[in-house]
């Protein structure tokens, strides 16, 4: 049901805007990026809950949120480089702050997975993952600042994207897209969480039977 809603929003919304293709991808790129931040933020919030309140579900929830975040992050990189290709004719632009930030975050959260898979499941893994997730959410603003500052010696001219002047319909479409992405995230999040929990239950039952 959720999926149908999302799909309809997906296909209806961009067609609503009668700009070129380059504008159209903006409706995907930016909401996906914002959803990516939301995922990482939610993951870090759950990580904090784990460390602070010892919430027994928080570790898995944090992991799943970050997993989704990496998926959305990869999509951001892909849509971002498509956008770059369309607007500037190259697949990668170092002047797009958001794109560079997502590259840094992509590297960081891949390391998160490496860390998680190198430790046996248990309280220690939960702690380490949570600490690293918190580092990630602090790294986002610090890196953003760093990337902004880096223009002063890497690029003499700072690009500013003219996306601020949005018309009413564009804004609506944008908001619908953002909402759709967030709903997509929540759905995928619930789905993966349910799957992971089921998996644990099955393994527990197997253990009981043997």
């Amino acid at each position: 049901m959720f999926a149908i809603a999302i799909v309809s929003v997906f296909f209806w919304a961009p067609s609503d805007a009668d700009q070129g293709l380059s504008q159209r991808i903006f409706y995907f790129h930016v909401p996906i990026a914002l959803t990516g931040y939301a995922c990482f933020g939610w993951g870090a919030w759950k990580a904090l809950r784990h460390l602070w309140k010892d919430d027994p579900n928080a570790d898995l929830e944090s992991y799943v949120a970050i997993h989704q975040g990496v998926i959305f992050g990869s999509l951001t990189l892909i849509t971002g480089s498509i956008w770059a290709k369309i607007s500037w004719g190259v697949w990668w632009v170092w002047s797009d702050d958001q794109l560079v930030l997502f590259l840094v975050l992509f590297l960081f959260y891949c390391a998160y997975f490496m860390l998680r898979y190198s430790v046996d499941p248990g309280p220690q893994r939960a702690n380490l993952s949570a600490v690293y997730a918190l580092f990630g959410v602090v790294l986002i603003p610090v890196s953003f600042l760093a990337i902004r500052l880096s223009h002063s010696f890497i690029h003499p001219v700072v690009f500013t994207r003219s996306g601020a002047q949005m018309t009413g319909t564009m804004l609506t479409t944008f908001c619908i897209c953002l909402a759709a992405m967030l709903v997509l995230f929540v759905t995928l999040y619930q789905l993966e969480l349910a799957g992971k929990r089921l998996d644990t239950r099955i393994r527990e039952l197997k253990e009981l039977l043997t």
Binding site: S118, L139, S143
Partner: peptide, 24 residues
Amino acid sequence: VAGRARELIQPLLFLPLSIPVIVG
């Protein structure tokens, strides 16, 4: 060092965090 991969993942964990230091 808490995990199985030991020192192997130290660069992976550390380098993304060091990018702002390089910039600064």
